[in-house]
C-alpha cells in the first residue's frame, strides 16, 4: 500500500478512508474486536435513534408516563416497532458488551497497553445494564414502581453514600413525580454522557495502539475489516428487526405507588444474579444486614473488575483466573436464576 497522499484527496471522507487503509488489525483477535465493536455501535445507534424518537412523546409524570407509552404504541405510526426495537436493542447491547468483556478476559486483552480499553469496556457494559434498568422504570408500570422502590432501598444500603444516592435518584423517600424526571435524566442524559466518554476513550486508545504496519496476519481497517463489519451489522440488523417485529415487549398497567407489591414479579435477566444472591442470603452476614453486605460486595466487585488491570500490572495467570471466575459466577448466577 502506498503511503497516503493527503494533498491529492479533495474530500475529507476519502482522506479518512485512506488514512484508515494504513491502519491494520490482526486477523484473529483484532478482527474479532472490530466486529464486536461494530455490532455494539450499530446497537447504540439504534438505541440513540429510537430513544430520541420515544422521547418525543414521553411525559415524565407518575400520572401520565404509562399512558404516554401506550399512546406511542397504539396511536403513533410505527410506535409499536420503535418501542420494540428500543427494548430489544438494549437487551442485545448488554449481551454483546458482556460477550466482548468476556472475550477480552479470555484473551487477556487488558494487558498493557490495553488497560484503558478494558476499564472503558467494563464501564460500558455496566452502563448498558444501568440504561436497560432505568429504561424499564420509565413506563411507570406496577413493576417499575416495585423496581424503583427496591433498587433505591438497595442503593441506600451502600455505606456512606447510600442514603444520598437514594435521595438523588428518587427525589424523595418514595417514588414520585420527581423520581421520573430524575430517572429520565439518568437514562437520556447522564448515562449516555458517561458512555460517550467511555467510547471516546476507546477510540483514542484504538487510534493510539493500532499497528500501522501490514503483515501476512493482518488486515487493513479500511476496506477489509470495515466491509466485514458492515456485512455483520446488516445481518444483526435483520435479526434485531425480526425479533422486534415478532416479539413486542410486555408493558404492565399503570401503577399506584401505595399498592405496588413485589408478589409475582420476576427480576430482569441482567440483574437476576443480584436478586438470586439477595434472596438466597441469610438475614445477617458478618454481623450486618445481608442486603448491606451483598450490595456493597457487588459494587466493590464491579469496581474491582473494571479497575483490575491497575492492580495486576504484570497480567498474571492468577489475575486472569480471578477475572474469569468472577465472570463465570455472574453468568452462572444469571442462568441459575433464570432456570429457578
Amino acid at each position: 500500500m502506498e503511503p497516503p497522499d493527503e494533498a491529492a484527496d479533495p474530500t475529507p471522507i476519502r482522506a479518512l478512508l485512506r488514512r484508515l487503509a494504513g491502519v491494520h488489525v490482526s486477523r484473529g483477535d483484532g478482527l474479532t474486536f472490530v466486529l464486536l465493536a461494530a455490532v455494539a455501535m450499530l446497537l447504540m445507534a439504534v438505541e440513540a435513534v429510537t430513544g430520541v424518537l420515544l422521547a418525543l412523546y414521553y411525559r415524565p409524570t407518575t400520572a401520565d408516563a404509562n399512558d404516554s407509552v401506550r399512546f406511542v404504541v397504539t396511536e403513533v405510526e410505527y410506535g409499536g416497532l420503535v418501542r420494540s426495537l428500543h427494548y430489544w436493542g438494549a437487551q442485545s447491547l448488554i449481551a454483546v458488551l458482556g460477550a466482548t468483556v468476556a472475550w477480552a478476559a479470555l484473551r487477556r486483552a487488558y494487558r498493557a497497553p490495553h488497560a484503558l480499553a478494558w476499564i472503558s469496556g467494563v464501564a460500558l457494559a455496566v452502563l448498558a445494564v444501568a440504561e436497560a434498568f432505568t429504561g424499564s422504570l420509565l413506563p411507570w408500570s406496577h413493576r417499575s414502581v416495585v423496581d424503583a422502590q427496591l433498587s433505591s432501598s438497595l442503593a441506600a444500603q451502600l455505606p456512606l453514600v447510600g442514603p444520598l444516592l437514594r435521595g438523588l435518584m428518587l427525589g424523595g423517600s418514595q417514588p414520585n413525580d420527581l423520581s421520573l424526571v430524575r430517572i429520565l435524566g439518568l437514562h437520556a442524559g447522564v448515562l449516555p454522557m458517561l458512555a460517550s466518554i467511555c467510547i471516546g476513550a476507546l477510540a483514542l486508545h484504538a487510534a493510539g495502539c493500532a499497528p500501522r504496519h501490514p503483515s501476512a496476519a493482518s488486515l487493513s481497517l479500511s476496506p477489509h475489516a470495515a466491509l466485514r463489519a458492515a456485512a455483520l451489522a446488516a445481518v444483526v440488523a435483520i435479526a434485531l428487526l425480526a425479533l422486534s417485529s415478532l416479539l413486542p415487549p410486555h408493558l404492565g398497567a399503570s401503577a399506584e405507588v401505595a399498592r405496588a407489591s413485589a408478589a409475582g414479579l420476576r427480576p430482569s435477566w441482567y440483574l437476576a444474579f443480584v436478586h438470586q444472591m439477595l434472596s438466597a442470603a441469610p438475614p445477617r452476614m458478618i454481623g450486618l444486614p445481608s442486603a448491606r453486605v451483598l450490595v456493597t460486595a457487588v459494587a466493590l466487585g464491579v469496581a474491582a473488575l473494571a479497575l483490575f488491570p491497575l492492580f495486576d500490572r504484570r497480567a498474571s495467570r492468577a489475575g486472569q483466573v480471578a477475572v474469569l471466575v468472577a465472570l463465570a459466577a455472574i453468568v452462572g448466577g444469571t442462568i441459575r436464576a433464570l432456570l429457578h
Binding site: G80, A234, V235
Partner: peptide
C-alpha cells in the same frame, strides 16, 4: 398492532441484499 410491526419485515430483503452485496465485495 401486530400488522404494523410485521409491515417492517419488508425491510428484511433489502438488508439481506445489502449483506450479500457486501460479502461479494
Amino acid at each position: 398492532d401486530a400488522n404494523g410491526r410485521r409491515a417492517w419485515l419488508v425491510a428484511l430483503p433489502p438488508l439481506a441484499i445489502l449483506a450479500a452485496l457486501l460479502l461479494l465485495k
